[in-house]
Design a protein around this nucleic acid. Structure first.
Lengths: 240, 240
DNA sequence: ACACTTATATGTATCTTGCATATTAGGTGC
DNA sequence: GCACCTAATATGCAAGATACATATAAGTGT
């Protein structure tokens, strides 16, 4: 029996299978705070609760492709930094049936975040507050624009907590911060992103020096315009 | 319609679903090198190739539980540090059918590694060589005990590379190294583990001081016995 | 007793980081 | 035009972390 014959006889229905979905944490910085885009559930279960946008993975679709499709369909977004986060597979995480969810982290610039809100008005921008426990990953609080604390559907609060923790962890050794910034940015904007994600203030000269020493920043020679005071130089991210 | 009625009518067969499996990277240190336990495939596809032990996720089984079960069934192992690694979901990663694999990293002490070999003689201990490119994660070479380079089945080489990279990345800020060591160990053994995982030599006094400063090591007052020369003190890992 | 080898301790130069302070370059209001 | 305000940028220094060299200690084997 060769491989082709084998495949003909293989019975792919032998086992009962779980459904597989992707859920997206659409993350950006708004008003100096991390923010996430949520959708309101209009079906049972958890009707009326806010949830992460997601969708089932097609049988002929890779996980990354499914995540990119959900990004397009649910956030009207063509481009964003997308990275796989973690896979959530508790048996009872969805009361309808067994659904395994592969969570993805999508990082949006402030501009992309607003564009998504414009394209999909049903999306809710919610502020994220993370206690500075860092280590184990304390409970994350999600606030509506009216400062109401939201209870997310399913295990989405845990997914969001994982996302924030991962982002914090990767912030200083990877280039994720630049995915949250426009093409051109000032060092102060870069620091603001870091401070928002870390939820802590950083020393300015030290931050500036460390960032420049990494060799990832290319000075453009251009400066911001219309600033009330001395304009800062604009930098561009450039892979080492 | 309330939630209970809704669930009755929900049709879980509406979409064609992928199969979900877990694959385990059973990792230990042997003779100063990272090593992985492999199984020989006795079925198509990829008959005769070496693969990571794995199994399908039961419909009433969480991902973590499935990983623990595979650890028990395929490695005869009750205890080991188990952590989810990454989920591999390319459409064509298995020619039989669509299988999404949630990869787990299992860290074994040298003792547990040998015990697994004893309990499951079909397992092959293969040495892993990782180029010191670190960053992007170069190609990983897997060597049989006879120093033959092995070609792993499916995308298991990529899974293994991800495991090694993750381990390297977590080595100095987490406690993973202790999962590779017995209950009591010397500072030299701890350094040997770090050097094997990193594939690089480390400065002894600096390593020793940094480890002790972390506050994770509890001196036992006991010393190794039978050492040819001055015996080293035994330490125990103790969560901060 | 001595050689041998590794564990452990210490000292110093170097590099990194945090923080304070100075200087620069705009805009704003008179 | 000119003083003033504020934030960007630059510099200086102390504290901390790290790499590396060297010294001392504690066992075994001859």
């Amino acid at each position: 029996m060769n491989e082709t014959e084998f495949l003909k006889e293989y019975d792919p229905t032998a086992f009962q299978r779980p459904s597989v979905a992707v859920d997206l944490v659409l993350l950006g910085i708004r008003d100096g705070w991390p923010a996430v885009l949520l959708v309101k559930r209009d079906q049972l279960p958890h009707v009326g609760r806010w949830a992460l946008p997601g969708g089932f993975v097609g049988i002929d679709e890779s996980l990354d492709a499914a995540a990119a499709r959900v990004l397009r369909e649910k956030a009207g977004m063509g481009e964003a930094h997308l990275e796989q986060l973690y896979t959530f597979g508790a048996v009872d995480r969805d009361p309808r049936m067994r659904i395994i969810s592969v969570a993805y982290l999508a990082l949006l610039t402030e501009q992309a975040f607003d564009a998504a809100l414009g394209a999909m008005p049903a999306l809710l921008p919610a502020a994220i507050q993370v206690p500075w426990a860092g280590e184990t990953g304390g409970p994350v609080t999600v606030l509506s624009p009216e400062k109401q604390e939201l209870t997310l559907a399913f295990d989405h609060a845990a997914i969001l907590a994982t996302a924030m923790l991962r982002l914090r962890g990767k912030l200083d050794y990877s280039d994720v911060a630049f995915a949250l910034l426009p093409e051109l940015f000032t060092l102060r904007q870069l620091q603001d992103v870091h401070e928002a994600v870390l939820g802590a203030a950083l020393n300015k000269p030290a931050f500036r020096r460390r960032q420049l020493d990494k060799g990832w920043l290319a000075a453009t020679g251009a400066y911001e315009v219309g600033a009330a005071f001395r304009p800062a130089e604009l930098y561009r991210f450039q892979r080492h």
